[in-house]
């Protein structure tokens, strides 16, 4: 039985259908990420769970209890806001103590619990600072302590790293992941950053235009995207129009396709393509359009007569110049089993 269940949530703001029947289930003690571009409805879904948004239809169930009709202040749902929403007129300790004061917890217990929460996020030394005088990372930790001190059933985080600079982000992501594991709380993140989703979560739900497109472990989604949209959103991918003939992909028959003959789409990651010498043989024939040495790798764009060039990432050897622009090449899949054949391509562009 899942700990959090969002069942068939729909929500419209005026004529705009922001959520179009979303269902997500999160197991107890695991971390789920809602991933998608801005405007896909991921934050609205999170706000529905916290009670800031009343869904037009659907149910919100946490710990087996239907909380759809509970007002936000009566839900046991911790929420870390984008850019944190710390109370500017209260110091760190008073921010963390806020929920306890509202609940009329005794003075002594409040102090003890605030101290423990600040210890947890290593901010004990900053108890009497005001939020304006904290760094972004410190503010984030205050926001987390403020939510966790109430011992909520679940923790929701809305783009928690957006307000941090890129350098700080990765270390904070790992810190946060460790913290959540230590506390063992069921959590849902919202982000548009697929790398962040990979670092933080046990499972990822990729969203698109108010719907859940695919749910699974991050690596499973990377390896087996169910749609061209997911393939392009998680990591980089070439999505190529191909013909299926006799269960094989036409340009490169090494790739098997378990579907009927006819037009199809092939998803292949750039690092799963290799450049071979031109000449007769299976694969895609074209010319090098662009080569960018990136240090460990070289990125190629190969013009093969399709709308988009093929992207190929090859390992670079020291002293070896990249293939010259304009030279004819043949491109083949390195591991045919890692390619995915889909019936539908990207949306008509």
């Amino acid at each position: 039985m899942s700990h959090i269940a969002l069942q068939d949530i729909a929500k419209s703001f005026g004529p705009v259908r922001v959520l179009d029947g979303c269902s997500v289930a999160v197991d107890k003690g695991t971390v789920m990420t809602l991933l998608g571009p801005s405007g896909c409805g991921k934050t609205t879904l999170l706000r529905t769970l916290a009670g800031f948004v009343e869904p037009d239809s659907g149910r919100v169930v946490v710990g087996g209890r239907d909380i759809t009709d509970l007002p936000p202040n009566r839900r046991q749902v911790g929420y870390v806001f984008q850019s944190y929403a710390l109370f500017p007129h209260l110091d760190v300790a008073a921010n963390v103590a806020y929920g306890l004061r509202v609940r009329r917890v005794s003075q002594a217990e409040t102090q003890a619990r605030v101290r423990k929460a600040l210890d947890l996020v290593s901010l004990s030394a900053y108890a009497d600072r005001y939020p304006a005088r904290l760094s972004g990372g410190q503010q984030q930790r205050v926001a987390i302590a403020r939510a966790l001190v109430l011992e909520p059933e679940v923790l929701l985080l809305d783009e928690p790293f957006n307000a941090l600079d890129a350098k700080l982000r990765l270390s904070m992501q790992i810190e946060l992941r460790k913290l959540i594991e230590r506390v063992g709380i069921t959590s849902i993140f919202v982000t548009h950053d697929q790398q962040e989703a990979m670092t933080l979560s046990d499972r990822v739900a990729v969203m698109r235009a108010g719907r859940i497109e695919q749910v699974g472990a991050p690596i499973d989604i990377y390896d087996r995207p169910r749609t061209a949209y997911v393939a392009a959103f998680i990591g980089r991918a070439n999505v190529l129009p191909v013909d299926i003939r006799g269960g094989r992909v036409a340009p490169d028959p090494a790739i098997a396709a378990a579907r009927a003959d006819g037009a199809a789409w092939l998803v292949v990651r750039p690092e799963n393509l290799a450049i071979e010498n031109a000449g007769e043989g299976p694969g895609w024939h074209g010319t090098v359009a662009f080569a960018t040495p990136q240090g460990a790798t070289i990125e190629y764009e190969i013009a093969v007569g399709m709308a988009e060039p093929l992207r190929v990432v090859a390992l670079r050897k020291v002293g070896e110049p990249p293939a010259a622009v304009g030279s004819p090449v043949r491109v083949r899949a390195v591991d045919p089993a890692a390619c995915v054949v889909l019936g539908e391509g990207p949306d008509s562009v």
Partner: peptide, 21 residues
């Protein structure tokens, strides 16, 4: 920031308490 009101509600305060605090 209207999110401060939401933060307050999320931490358990009612409308009146949020206004006062």
């Amino acid at each position: 920031d209207p999110r401060l009101d939401e933060a307050s509600a999320n931490l358990g305060a009612g409308k009146l308490e949020t206004f006062v605090r």
